[in-house]
Structures are given as structure tokens and as C-alpha cells.
């Protein structure tokens, strides 16, 4: 006889409680997404909830925003989007290029060094983001040179590195050194052994890290809020300015696009790692 995972004793109260808590949890975490999605289909000009009529006019608005460049505003949505994508891609590439060798060195190196480094890289996670933003702003302002897009890329890197590093370390952990030695004994140079054996086996973790870097950087607001300039700004900043100046549902329609893109990426991560690396 099979024993159910949830005990049936106690008149099903256990089952009911679990179900209730799970429902509450899912509701709370998905509520913003639900509200934003419903609102984006609203037909009215304001953001009163719930909407009385539905239409696709805000989606048309968003598309129009992208197609007909608005020359009146200093920073157009197209520029912001392009900057966001560019920043995210640079952050993704650099963090991966840094983290693969770093993860390799830490896992193959001494345990003490590894623990210290992991702690160091986790620090940006526990720092209040506002303080981090002010700190990076102070650093950027003290520089005498204009560093352009890098004033956003560098803080994003600090935020993203712990996630990417953890994924790479997680992927690296399972790779026995004997696999490398086997490749070397067959004639591969140490670097070739890493390329042929370690990297392919780390692949899932590396890809998960890449996508995480992309999502975190693309959605980052707090630090970027301190760092953006008239020339260099990102999509979240544009959305915030737009919402502050005129709260219309076109921003919400735009966020639905972003949410869909994020969900697709996260599902991709989930498929890729399938229990082989950890996200947090």
C-alpha cells in the first residue's frame, strides 16, 4: 500500500491548511503581475482598478512609442531600451567571463580561500541598494573622466556577480578532478582539458547564470536611479519617469511585454538546470 505524502488523519485539516497557505502564497506573489496585466487591457485613460472596459489601445500606444520616435523628450523609450539591452548583454558576458575561471579556481583551490571569496561576493546582496547606489555615484563623480555606459554596467556587475558565481560554483562542484586528469593523461593540455571536459559539463550552470545576469540587470532600478544621466538611462528609469509624470496604462502594457520575456527566460533556466545548479 502506498503511503500518501500528506497524512489523512485529523479529518483533512492538515491538507486544508497546506492548500490554504499555498494559495495565499501564490496569490501574494502573483498579484502584481495579475493586476498589471488586467490594467494593461483597460480602455480608460486613468489607472483606476478594476477597469470598466477593455481594449488593446495601450498596446497600440506602446508600439507607437517605439515606432514613432518622440523627439520632444530628452531620452526616448527606444534609446532607453537599447541602453538596457546593451548594459544587460555586457554585464552578462563580463560576469560569465569572470565567473567561469573564478569558480574553477575557487573549487580547485583551498577551501578557506573559497569560503572567504564567496562571502566577499555576497556582500552586495546584503548592502542596502540605496547606499550602494550612493556609493557608486560618489565613486563615479570623483572620476575625472566620462565613462559613459560603464557607470551603469559596473554597479550592475557588482549586483549580478554573486548569482553568476554561485551558479558556476554549483556546476563546478560536481566535476571530479579525475575527469580532467583523464583528459590530460590522454594527451590534452590542462587548458584543453578544461575546454573539452569542464566547460561542457558546466554548461547548464553557466547558461543559468547568464540568463540570471540578463534578467537582474535588465530589471535593476534602485542603483541605476542614482547613476543614470541624460545620455545614459535604462528602460526601468524611463518607465518610472513616465509613470510619475503621467500615470497612463501604456507603461503597464510595456511591463507586460517585459514580464512575458522574463517568464520565457526563467522557464528556459528551469529547463536548463533541471536540478543541476541552484538559482539562489
Amino acid at each position: 500500500m502506498r503511503v500518501g505524502l500528506l497524512p489523512n488523519e485529523g479529518g483533512g485539516t492538515y491538507r486544508f491548511t497546506m492548500l490554504f497557505l499555498a494559495t495565499i502564497g501564490i496569490l501574494i506573489s502573483s498579484l502584481p503581475v495579475i493586476v498589471v496585466t488586467i490594467m494593461s487591457f483597460s480602455a480608460s485613460d486613468n489607472t483606476g482598478f478594476p477597469p470598466t472596459e477593455f481594449s488593446l489601445r495601450w498596446y497600440a500606444d506602446v508600439i507607437a512609442l517605439f515606432v514613432n520616435e518622440d523627439t520632444s523628450s530628452a531620452q526616448s523609450v527606444v534609446d532607453s531600451t537599447l541602453t538596457s539591452i546593451l548594459v544587460a548583454v555586457i554585464v552578462m558576458v563580463i560576469s560569465t567571463l569572470v565567473c567561469i575561471p573564478l569558480a574553477y579556481a575557487l573549487v580547485r583551490g583551498q577551501r578557506k580561500i573559497r569560503e572567504g571569496m564567496e562571502l566577499l561576493f555576497t556582500l552586495p546582496l546584503v548592502f542596502p541598494l540605496v547606499i550602494l547606489g550612493i556609493a557608486f555615484l560618489l565613486i563615479a563623480e570623483s572620476l575625472r573622466v566620462e565613462i559613459g555606459i560603464w557607470r551603469i554596467v559596473i554597479p550592475h556587475l557588482a549586483l549580478v556577480l554573486p548569482f553568476v558565481l554561485r551558479n558556476c560554483i554549483g556546476a563546478m562542484n560536481g566535476i571530479s578532478i579525475e575527469l580532467e586528469e583523464a583528459a590530460i593523461s590522454l594527451g590534452a593540455s590542462p587548458l584543453r582539458a578544461i575546454w573539452d571536459v569542464v566547460i561542457p559539463l558546466m554548461r547548464a550552470g553557466i547558461l543559468a547564470g547568464l540568463i540570471f545576469a540578463l534578467i537582474i540587470s535588465f530589471n535593476e532600478f534602485t542603483i541605476t536611479f542614482f547613476m543614470y544621466t541624460i545620455d545614459v538611462s535604462t528602460l526601468p528609469i524611463w518607465m518610472y519617469s513616465r509613470t510619475v509624470s503621467s500615470l497612463d496604462p501604456s507603461t503597464l502594457a510595456l511591463s507586460v511585454f517585459i514580464i512575458v520575456a522574463d517568464i520565457v527566460l526563467i522557464m528556459l533556466v528551469d529547463k536548463l538546470i533541471a536540478g543541476r545548479a541552484n538559482l539562489f
Binding site: 571530479s176 579525475e178 575527469l179 586528469e181 583523464a182 583528459a183 590530460i184 593523461s185 590522454l186 594527451g187 590534452a188 593540455s189 590542462p190 584543453r192 582539458a193 571536459v197
Partner: peptide, 15 residues
């Protein structure tokens, strides 16, 4: 890697 000795490991270390 220059010695070219074939080695079989305890874990076998198949790729």
C-alpha cells in the same frame, strides 16, 4: 599530457 600514458582511474572518469 606529453607523456601519453593511458590511465584508468578508480572512478573510471569516463566523460
Amino acid at each position: 599530457h606529453k607523456r601519453g600514458f593511458g590511465m584508468v582511474f578508480q572512478s573510471l572518469a569516463l566523460f
